[in-house]
Simulated assay, not measured.
Amino acid sequence: MTEQTGTEASAVAGDPGSVAGLELKPALEAVLMVVDEPATEEHLAKLLQRPRRKVGDALRELADEYTAQGRGFELRLVAGGWRFYSRPQYAAAVEGFALDGQQARLTQAALETLAVVAYRQPVSRSRVSAVRGVNCDGVMRTLLQRGLIGEAGAEPETGAILYTTTNYFLERMGLRGLDELPELAPFLPEAEAIEAETQEGVPSFDPDAPDSEDAYDKTEL
């Protein structure tokens, strides 16, 4: 019989010195405290060397425990992964700390443009402009820079670049998927209704180009 090395011994299941030997719930809390985006159950299971089902059950138990304890934070399943969030009822406190005199919110124009992309995706820039009735180049550039929308190929008929929302959008909106968007689509005009007004032949803007001198573009950022 050969003698085990220190590394081999620490890898034995149940050894508190190994990842597999750590208590699951505290280990999950420690990892989730440092993630910068929602962590999937598969990833967490691989990191902690546990079955995915066991990790998923532990995450849901933790979420229920935080709710029962009335903690100021919650563990939520968002965009396919888990992450800590502050509870909505404490938004005023968090906003005061996060902003601290800075304006970090999107403008009304940006929110309206983002809504059109969310409900019409994949959608071209010119079609977004047609729905809103104004030129949206500057706002679309802002949304791209903030990572809320991204390019998703080109429209076969016209070659116009198509845009969709991103996982970061889901994360920031607290959604698990697009199916959780509020039922607002019926209030937006159908694609056929705006087809005649849409100028698909206009070249898509360059995301890296400087802002237009158009006054409206400046107010839309």
Rank of each mutant, 00 (worst) to 15 (best):
M1S: 13
V12M: 09
A13I: 07
A13S: 06
L22M: 13
E23S: 13
A27F: 03
A30E: 14
M33C: 11
M33V: 04
D36F: 07
E37F: 09
P38V: 12
L48R: 00
P51T: 08
K54D: 12
E61F: 04
D64L: 10
D64I: 02
G72Y: 14
L75T: 07
V78D: 05
V78R: 09
A79W: 07
W82G: 12
Y85R: 15
Q89L: 09
A91S: 12
A98R: 15
L99C: 13
L99E: 15
G101L: 08
Q102L: 10
T107F: 02
A109T: 11
A110S: 14
V116W: 07
V116I: 15
Q121V: 01
V128S: 03
S129Y: 03
S129C: 08
N135G: 11
N135P: 01
L144S: 06
R146W: 10
L148F: 01
E151A: 14
P156A: 12
G159Q: 02
T164F: 00
Y168N: 14
L170E: 05
L170S: 03
G174C: 04
L175I: 07
L175F: 08
E180D: 09
L181R: 02
L181A: 03
E183P: 01
E183W: 04
L184Y: 13
P186H: 01
F187R: 07
F187C: 04
L188E: 05
E192P: 00
E195S: 14
E197D: 15
E197T: 04
E200I: 03
S204D: 15
D206H: 08
P210F: 09
Y216P: 00
D217E: 15
T219S: 11
